[in-house]
């Protein structure tokens, strides 16, 4: 039955090639479909600060890269300390009966569709920001320049908050797993030296789990950069470089979601596909980096368990 084995290897090999092929095709097809703007603007696409549809036909991605990076990084600024803190509590301090349910609850929350977060942001968070939180921020912190302008709730700040809520389950779950994977001997050694609970966490556990935590943040960042629906609903959707956290903006993802159906012509369509290509390459790089950290963080673990 050698032919049976060969046939089976051939078929499964083909499907494997198919899966790899999809990823290769992703990059190739986007680059091909965006060829007219790639040829016409070249690298200028990455440094142009206006997006002017036909008849002007000038397309640059700067406002959306700024919007994407601002919202994602601000979201992480909020979600990193909260997520790591929560993961530490769940693994180190929570009574055992509480660990599993809280952990599972957070994991289930990671499964909630992003459109639901966006809807909640639009109906609940936007009015709250507009009438209560943003006026207060403007009054007390307006002098920093970050919180200037008329607060209308549909802005970069609200989008960042929604993104932070959405990245928290991802970062918490992976951080918890990497802290849980720290060998007990590591903790016991620190306790044996007379360390307090916090010193055990700070000096024995966190350094050991560092690789996993970096990966968790990377994967959270990847999720934030590419998030579309939630951001589209609350960011205000204006093609401009935001000059404060209260100004309307656009991320690469929300630009595509908003403009695709009403593109002014083939050149704008090509520009939108190129914007998608840029987003794809950014997220691929970040994901590969995060995966490398995750893989590396497992290496000492394997040796230590023995």
């Amino acid at each position: 039955m050698v032919w049976g084995n060969r046939l089976f290897a051939g078929i499964t090999g083909l499907t494997a090639a198919g899966v790899v092929g999809v990823l290769v095709a992703l990059v190739a097809v986007l680059a091909y479909t965006a060829r007219s703007t790639l040829e016409r603007f070249g690298l200028r696409f990455l440094f142009t600060t206006v997006w002017e549809p036909a008849p002007l036909n000038v397309y640059g991605i700067v406002p959306f890269v700024v919007g994407t990076l601002t919202t994602s990084l601000l979201a992480l600024l909020i979600s990193i300390p909260v997520s790591i803190g929560a993961a530490i509590f769940i693994t180190q301090h929570a009574p055992p009966w509480l660990r599993l349910p809280v952990g599972q609850l957070i994991e289930l929350l990671a499964a909630i569709p992003s459109i639901v977060f966006g809807f909640w942001g639009l109906i609940v968070l936007v009015p709250l920001m507009r009438y209560h939180i943003e006026p207060a921020l403007g009054r007390y912190l307006g002098w920093t320049g970050l919180f200037s302008g008329t607060p209308i709730g549909l802005d970069v700040l609200t989008a960042s908050l929604v993104l932070s809520v959405m990245t928290i389950p991802t970062i918490t779950a992976i951080t918890r797993d990497s802290i849980a994977a720290v060998p007990t001997s590591q903790k016991e050694a620190a306790i044996g030296l007379g360390a307090t609970e916090w010193e055990v966490t700070r000096r024995a556990v966190l350094p050991y789990a560092r690789g996993g935590i970096v990966a968790a943040v990377g994967l959270g960042l990847g999720r934030a950069l590419g998030e579309t629906m939630a951001v589209t609903l609350v960011i205000g959707n204006r093609n401009q470089i935001p000059d404060s956290l209260f100004s309307q903006g656009q991320t690469i993802a929300s630009l595509i979601a908003n403009q695709f159906a009403e593109a002014s012509g083939p050149l704008e369509l090509s520009a939108l596909v190129e914007a998608g290509l840029v987003l794809l390459l950014i997220t691929l790089a970040i994901n590969l980096g995060a995966r490398a950290f995750l893989a590396r963080s497992k290496v000492p673990r394997a040796g230590d368990d023995a």
């Binding site: 494997a16 097809v29 998608g276």
Partner: peptide, 30 residues
């Protein structure tokens, strides 16, 4: 080469879903 499959799957799961939409749209337009 079979080891690439796992890595591909990991990387692919991080591709933004809007980009997947652009991809399928582009393939079908062609």
């Amino acid at each position: 080469a079979a080891r690439i499959v796992g890595l591909t799957a990991d990387v692919m799961s991080g591709v933004p879903s809007i980009v997947v939409g652009v991809f399928v749209y582009s393939v079908l337009v062609l």
